[in-house]
């Protein structure tokens, strides 16, 4: 998934706050109709909210709260066909917006689970919610994780799923940009905790942060929303590199070169530390070979039994 155009505006702890305030101010509220409007006329709202500079400084936190919505990003987003009032209270059409609307919150899960086709979607939002509750973003005590919500990563006014046909490298880039918009340390070569990772840049270009920082999803959904803490994340190269021959090839050759350069030929021949589990795995050959071996054993057993019968016959004839 990607979150177009959002990372440039949502940075640091601001995304959560910005999203929160945006919803509060623009009408967080009871009208969770969730229906797709046939004719969408959001011009009334966008007249103000499309201004790129529409923002204010929150007196409590001192953070700048961005209230702007990019109309193009909105129209191309997953929610592009919705009217503002499908999610937000219709009362927002009055300005100044009524103060009571501040108290309301907006629930992604509730709305998405009410959709008719909810059970046919790749993602069940109830599952996402359960996974998120166990995510490091929800369980961490870190002050920057306070108030973390769906909108911290998924800007509801710009988010859309990636589609088949898009370049994978671009999808990976956009996906990782969401993480990197907060995780600044990862971008600093001196402080990056991924220093142990061989060919770091190549990994970052081709692998999503999520690929290592989520468990394999048990719910059958493409990606788990249970983001793992660094210490719980996958550091075992083999988990990915034994499943795909090309990756395996690269990993093994890389480790072999390291082995030869640091330990020499003899050590390489005896210890071969580059070898990874699953290198020679081929389910087809395994099954075929074990079947042939099994059949051979049966045939040999039958042959032996036939010989035994012949031997007994001979004994009887002699007796």
């Amino acid at each position: 998934m990607s979150d177009r155009d959002s990372e440039s505006r949502l940075t640091g702890p601001a995304p959560a706050l910005a999203a929160g305030w945006l919803l509060i101010l623009s009408g967080l509220a009871p009208n969770l109709a969730c229906a797709e409007s046939e004719t969408v006329d959001n011009q009334g709202c966008l007249r103000c909210h499309q201004m790129a500079t529409l923002a204010y400084r929150d007196p409590g936190t001192g953070e700048i709260v961005d209230l702007s919505i990019a109309p193009m990003a909105l129209s191309h987003s997953a929610h592009g066909k919705l009217a503002c009032s499908d999610c937000h209270s219709a009362d927002f059409d009055r300005y100044p917006h009524p103060k009571r609307l501040k108290e309301e919150t907006l629930s992604c899960v509730g709305c998405h689970e009410d959709q008719d086709d909810a059970d046919q979607r790749l993602y069940r939002f109830e599952t996402i919610d359960e996974e998120f509750e166990r995510s490091v973003h929800a369980t961490s005590d870190h002050p920057k994780a306070a108030g973390f919500s769906c909108h911290s990563c998924h800007d509801p006014h710009a988010f859309r799923n990636s589609r088949v046909g898009e370049e994978i490298r671009q999808i990976v880039h956009d996906d990782n940009a969401i993480c990197l918009s907060c995780h600044k340390k990862v971008q600093d070569p001196l402080r990056d905790p991924h220093a142990w990772l061989p060919k770091r840049e190549k990994h970052r270009e081709s692998v999503r942060c999520l690929d290592c920082h989520t468990p394999l999803t048990e719910a059958g959904q493409p990606v788990s929303h249970r983001i793992l803490a660094a210490e719980d994340s996958n550091r075992d190269c083999v988990n990915c590199h034994s499943k795909e021959p090309q990756l395996l090839n690269r990993l093994y050759q890389y480790r072999s070169e390291e082995d030869l350069a640091s330990k020499g030929w003899v050590s390489k021949a005896v210890f071969n530390e580059a070898y990874v589990v699953g290198m020679s795995r081929s389910p087809l050959i395994d099954r075929l070979a074990l079947a042939v071996i099994g059949i051979t054993v049966l045939v040999l057993g039958a042959h032996g039994y036939g010989r035994y019968r012949a031997y007994r016959r001979e004994q009887e004839d002699q007796a």
Partner: peptide
């Protein structure tokens, strides 16, 4: 095809054939 994979699969297939030989 990636050479390591070719080598690995050849090694595996030959090993299975020789296990079969041993049984016979």
């Amino acid at each position: 095809i990636g050479s390591v994979w070719v080598v690995a699969i050849a090694h595996l297939t030959l090993a299975y054939l020789l296990v079969l030989f041993l049984l016979v």
